[in-house]
Design a protein around this nucleic acid. Structure first.
Lengths: 203, 203
DNA sequence: TGGGAAACAGACTGAACGGTCTGTTTGTAT
DNA sequence: ATACAAACAGACCGTTCAGTCTGTTTCCCA
């Protein structure tokens, strides 16, 4: 086997991810990606069949990181015995990381992908759906444990974290202020606390 | 004065809005827009200086409609005396319209615009910011009237409606199911009700 | 009724795009 | 040492893009 191509492949993905999140997929040319990655057209098409294949690979890798974030939140709160408290602290985990999330990326790759129908119908959106489903499944478990009589569908409430994430990303882009991520996650957490505290005969 | 060009201009905007919301701005070519609008290149560049100018005009018109929606919600709840109840019913107004919002458009133009840095830095995002600010200002008034001692920043809570709207649009695109809009607005409304009911010494 | 400007039509242009092709380098197994 | 395939470089190609240019139609007003 010749030199390790995986290194260059990752460099291409790194450059592409940043450019796509910043400018969108269609607005990012392969020449831009190649230049930013410091490589060549030959190298690019050795690793990816087409530009659409790049989008797929990009999203696959991003989903992996996203699911790792989900696991990180679950792990960080695994020791909390009270289910309602764990759910709140789970949300607070991301609230506490809100500022560093926004300093690491100015937006979310999902938004760039979902914006373009060619990517949605291409199957790239299916990868995102699997990530959303994983978040929903795990959080719904926490919700059901926290309250059996909540006046809210557990799945819908679970989805609201994704909704808050993505909505906050867009709000940050709109105003140019990254603090909305932390603030909006905080809004969700406090609303959640109020709903849980209303539960009959708790504590 | 010759024939009324405003009609054709609107047709171009209609076609462009649909295509841009569906496919993104950079992924939409002028030839597509022209064909969908049933007009010509000459007509297009008679009405718009450039493709970026189209984005600006598109966003301007969309913001107008957005602000009309804001006003519709305010008007529909203007007669409700109790401030907390009015705030809740204000959110429910959009919840009730969730399904028709999603049948009229598969996503939001704001998302397509905010995805591309060329549009954000171009000043088009400023138009969106003005819309967001208007929503925030009006809703914050309702929030402050509804509760003077809420454990939440009124502006941040007001922003959460925009966050829920945009996040729900993306969730709908991810799963292909339009009902998330109504459902997520419902989640926000119920969480809001819980937070308001917790307020000390209310009814 | 004819002059003029707004409103349009569509062929055309140069640049940029995604993708291909030919050739070279690199590491490894024999 | 050599054979060989993976890894890469970059010139090249056909197409599509945003934008231009020339000419025609429409309608009001004098």
């Amino acid at each position: 086997m010749p030199r390790d191509g995986a290194v260059n492949r990752e460099r291409i993905l790194d450059a592409a991810e940043q450019l796509v999140i910043e400018n969108g997929f269609a607005a990012t040319s392969l020449d831009q990606v190649i230049k930013a990655a410091g490589t060549s057209k030959g190298a690019f098409f050795h690793h990816f069949d087409s530009k659409l294949a790049l989008a797929r690979a990009l999203t696959e890798r991003y989903v992996e990181g996203d699911l790792a974030q989900l696991q990180a939140g679950l792990d960080a709160t695994a020791a909390i015995a009270d289910p309602a408290e764990r759910l709140v602290e789970f949300v607070r985990f991301y609230e506490d990381h809100g500022d560093e999330i926004m300093s690491a990326q100015s937006s979310c790759l999902y938004i760039a992908v979902l914006t373009e129908q060619q990517l949605v119908s291409n199957g790239t959106a299916d990868l995102i759906e699997r990530a959303v489903t994983a978040w929903r499944r795990e959080i719904a478990v926490l919700v059901r444990a926290a309250s059996e009589s909540l006046d809210l569908d557990a799945d819908a409430l679970a989805d609201h974290l994704f909704v808050t994430f993505e909505g906050a990303f867009l709000l940050c882009r709109t105003t140019g202020s990254p603090e909305h991520m932390r603030v909006q996650l905080g809004v969700f957490r406090r609303l959640l606390e109020a709903a849980l505290r209303l539960e009959p005969a708790r504590g």
